[in-house]
Amino acid sequence: MSEFDELQGIIQRHAERRQAEARACETFLHALYHALRSASGPGLPLNNVTLDVVPDPLHRLRPTPTGGFHAAWLRLGLCEVLVRVRRYDGAFQGEYGDGGVFRLDTTGEDDLLALARRILKDVAATYAGEPLDHTLSRLN
């Protein structure tokens, strides 16, 4: 068997696991989008939020290997923020904007709302020229 055939076989054997991980990460990104839309509180939806799932611009391989990041641009009114997320040790681990990071062990509505509000706060701080508090990388 050639190295090429071995590579193709490995990619095929792990396709189901990669696809399940990609679906989980994309579902997370969609849930985060909905959390951002409702981050202002009940009855106060943010209508200027859109989601565009994209290939992770930092990936050098396609399809994305297991454990790799999945990405989306979230438009927040006048700006856009890139959010990257992956599954790591059973949690969702990710990064956003200029240095924001997170890890969610659970993805309930309250967890996602807390992350959405933190993203809004950190993006506002970035545009205001304020430093981000990177010590809060774990939300729960």
Rank of each mutant, 00 (worst) to 15 (best):
L51S: 02
D122V: 12
A24D: 11
R37G: 05
A15Q: 06
R117I: 14
Q19V: 12
A125F: 12
R138H: 09
A31E: 03
A20L: 10
R60P: 01
V54C: 10
Y88H: 10
V54P: 03
I119A: 11
I11K: 03
G129L: 12
H34W: 08
R138E: 12
N140E: 04
S137L: 07
A128F: 12
R117H: 08
H70V: 07
A22V: 08
S38P: 02
I10M: 06
R118L: 13
D110K: 13
G77M: 11
R84C: 04
L61M: 13
L113I: 15
D89F: 05
K121W: 11
G100Q: 05
E130L: 15
G68P: 01
E21R: 06
A72W: 03
H14M: 02
A72N: 03
G94E: 07
S2C: 07
N48T: 15
F69A: 02
L78V: 08
S38W: 08
Y127T: 04
W73N: 03
L7R: 10
L115C: 12
L113D: 11
P57L: 06
Y127N: 11
D133Y: 08
G9A: 12
T135I: 06
D52F: 08
N48R: 14
A24E: 07
R75G: 01
A128G: 08
V49F: 09
R75K: 13
Q93D: 04
L29V: 02
P131M: 11
Y88K: 09
E16V: 13
G100I: 05
Y88G: 01
G99T: 04
L112I: 14
N140T: 05
A72V: 03
I119P: 04
G67C: 06
L132H: 11
I10N: 02
R17H: 03
R103Q: 04
G43F: 15
P55C: 06
R103D: 01
D111P: 02
E80V: 04
V49K: 06
H134V: 15
E3D: 13
E80G: 08
D5P: 00
R18Q: 06
P55N: 12
N140A: 05
D122E: 15
N48H: 14
S2A: 10
L112E: 12
A24K: 09
H70D: 01
G77Y: 04
T107F: 07
G43I: 15
E26D: 10
E16I: 11
A124Q: 14
R75T: 14
R62G: 01
H70T: 10
W73Q: 01
L74S: 00
E95D: 10
H14A: 04
L7T: 07
H34E: 15
G67I: 02
T107N: 10
A91H: 05
P131I: 15
P65W: 06
E109S: 13
